[in-house]
Design a protein around this nucleic acid. Structure first.
Lengths: 165, 165
DNA sequence: TATTGTTATACTCTATAACTATA
DNA sequence: TATAGTTATAGAGTATAACAATA
């Protein structure tokens, strides 16, 4: 749950309920347990991001995608590197930057994890008609885009674009 | 972002991006600032819940709806009660329970807040055709319901309903 | 004995500030 | 001097355990 609620459209309560579902820490713990892993949530988030990116990411890029701040990423990378789950390579194009890559061990870990979670989501949507699945993705894509634009404007200016009266 | 990613359906990345958007603390802070308030996020969440419920709620009910644990709610209620934003009344039907209600001051606060946030969401969806808005709500409703069922099963048994092989 | 809520404490996650190295 | 990252510290948010009161 989140304080953002009670929209004119009636949409907000649904979004917030969904967010509550996806935030449940219990879920994550079940997944790592099923996978026989011992990683905290932000650490796994980093691995999933690296896995999805298919190429090494900079520390700053990881922080941006997680919507967190640099030092938070660094701390987890330190721990992950000690365990040989990721490795840091100096970016040849900029000696200041580091490129973060999964090690083979890291890739195995994230594969085990995503397989389990994907199974849950696939099971939840198993009975859906294909058309509904496609529509949901289409609408969610636009929703995310439009909300992102709106929120950026709010965060930047303190007021939504059209209410600058 | 969350470690739950990379679904077979392609749905997961969208859900997680949406979740990241809704989790941005910056947004909440902008809203309370615009409203001239000084409340932390979980406290406002409680007020929004009480406002949406339209009748007093028990402590346990608030905790359930927030997907948090009892003591967490109690601590915020203590602070909110000191500031006369909520009041606790012993439930006449069960002397153990307390009914939590907004004071007039609390209602004014939550009204100011929700008006601002609702404005943002309304602006974000202003250009949408009515049909898309309705479809989104329909699909989100089912999605939330199905995911909730699936997650409950996972949390309870450690395995999804159909994969008990 | 089970349930509602509270108090006290500890842990997880994230942010801010100060610093180092490269550009 | 600006940027990428790191280190150290502080704060917000939530959980667990032990307890009190009522059912």
């Amino acid at each position: 749950m989140d304080p953002l609620s009670d929209a004119t459209t009636g949409l907000l309560p649904h979004l917030l309920q969904l967010r509550t579902l996806l935030n449940r820490g219990q879920l994550y713990e079940q997944a790592v347990q099923d996978a026989g892993l011992a990683l905290d949530r932000p650490a796994m988030t980093i691995l999933v991001l690296l896995n999805a990116a298919e190429h090494p990411l900079r520390v700053g890029e990881i922080a941006t995608r997680m919507q967190v701040v640099g030092p938070h990423v660094t701390r987890h990378l330190n721990s992950l590197e000690k365990r040989a789950i990721i490795k840091r390579v100096t970016d040849p194009e900029d000696q200041r930057a580091r490129l973060i890559a999964l090690t083979p061990s890291g890739r195995r870990i994230v594969d085990r994890y995503t397989t389990i979670v994907n199974g849950w989501f696939a099971a939840a949507l198993a009975q859906w008609p294909d058309h509904d699945r496609a529509e949901l993705i289409r609408l969610l894509t636009r929703l995310t885009s439009d909300l992102s634009t709106q929120f950026d404007a709010v965060a930047a200016g303190g007021t939504p674009p059209e209410s600058e009266d």
